[in-house]
């Protein structure tokens, strides 16, 4: 493998890892905060992709990204209302309920956009390669890393440095006590859900120029994300980051060295982690 192929493979791996991290961070946030596993998160990812596609055609790519983020966030804010009844319920119930919503969202997308595969047209300035120190990088992959990192940093600042994040962290450890301090946890849950779904939406929008999306893909995305969730450690917002990068790299290098089976590698890794370190590779044992 030449140096430039190697570097490009790393870039592809990291960019996919960063985008997937946003999806996982969203899932982990509500998993910790509300105790809800949103198996249907993929639907909002694809929703983000479609909104980005339509808005890019109308107004341009920048508006596509912004619109996808805001609209999925608003959808998330309101979808929290029917999800309230899941609080404290068994995980099977959550699985069925969240997947039912994913089906509903996906079928609404079919009604709006049909079954056609869409991919967001890239603006000309993101097409092609850019040469840095003699190595050529695909421009859009670099942008993806940059933008996803920016969002991840913003998310971390929100979570660890702002008052809202302080509320979230408190709710994650002791919801009832937060309520007894006079804080309306229900309304914070709506905001938490909006952020979680918007993170999925941004990720879908960012990835939408790279591959064709179809609405029903929303139903399988959770499956692709599962290894990251498990390897990082459930509910572990920080651990999900190295896990997402690891899985991204395993995928990109796997695609070159073992192209016929590379899709199974993350799951193989997940199973191994579940056997030897079930709390997750990047989570301290409690």
């Amino acid at each position: 493998m030449s140096l430039s192929t190697f570097i490009r493979t790393v870039i592809v791996g990291i960019s996919n890892g960063m985008v997937n991290y946003l999806v996982v961070a969203g899932i982990a946030l509500v998993m910790g905060g509300i105790g809800l596993v949103n198996f249907g998160q993929g639907a909002y990812y694809v929703l983000g992709a479609y909104i980005c596609f339509s808005l890019t055609k109308l107004l341009g790519f920048g508006w596509g990204l912004l619109g996808a983020t805001l609209i999925t966030g608003i959808v998330g804010y309101f979808i929290e209302i029917p999800f309230r009844r899941l609080f404290g319920k068994h995980i099977t119930y959550m699985l069925l309920y969240t997947m039912a919503f994913a089906y509903i969202i996906c079928d609404i997308m079919v009604a709006i956009w049909g079954y056609q595969l869409v991919s967001t047209p890239l603006p000309h300035y993101f097409k092609g390669l850019v040469e840095i120190f003699g190595v050529r990088f695909p421009k859009y992959y670099l942008f993806m890393i940059f933008f996803a990192t920016l969002i991840a940093i913003a998310f971390f600042i929100m979570f660890y440095k702002t008052k809202l994040g302080m509320y979230f962290r408190a709710i994650i450890s002791d919801r009832e006590m937060v309520e007894s301090l006079g804080i309306n946890v229900k309304s914070l849950n709506s905001i938490m859900f909006a952020i979680s779904i918007a993170l999925g939406g941004i990720a879908g929008a960012l990835y939408s120029p790279l591959s064709g999306q179809s609405p029903k893909e929303g139903l399988v995305i959770f499956g692709n994300i599962m290894p990251i969730l498990m390897i990082g450690g459930m509910r572990n917002l920080k651990g999900a980051l190295p896990a997402a990068l690891l899985v991204g790299l395993v995928n990109s290098f796997g695609a070159i060295y073992v192209p016929s089976i590379y899709n199974l590698l993350p799951f193989l890794l997940m199973v191994i982690v579940m056997i030897i370190k079930p709390q997750g590779l990047f989570t301290k044992k409690e």
């Binding site: 302080m166 962290r169 408190a170 994650i172 450890s173 002791d174 009832e176 006590m177 309520e179 007894s180 301090l181 006079g182 804080i183 309306n184 946890v185």
Partner: peptide, 24 residues
Amino acid sequence: MPSYKIARLGIAYVPQGRHIFPTL
């Protein structure tokens, strides 16, 4: 009345078992 509204009326609660926020 929901507990957050009761708290806002001016009742503070120090529960058994402390319930501080460990990660804060």
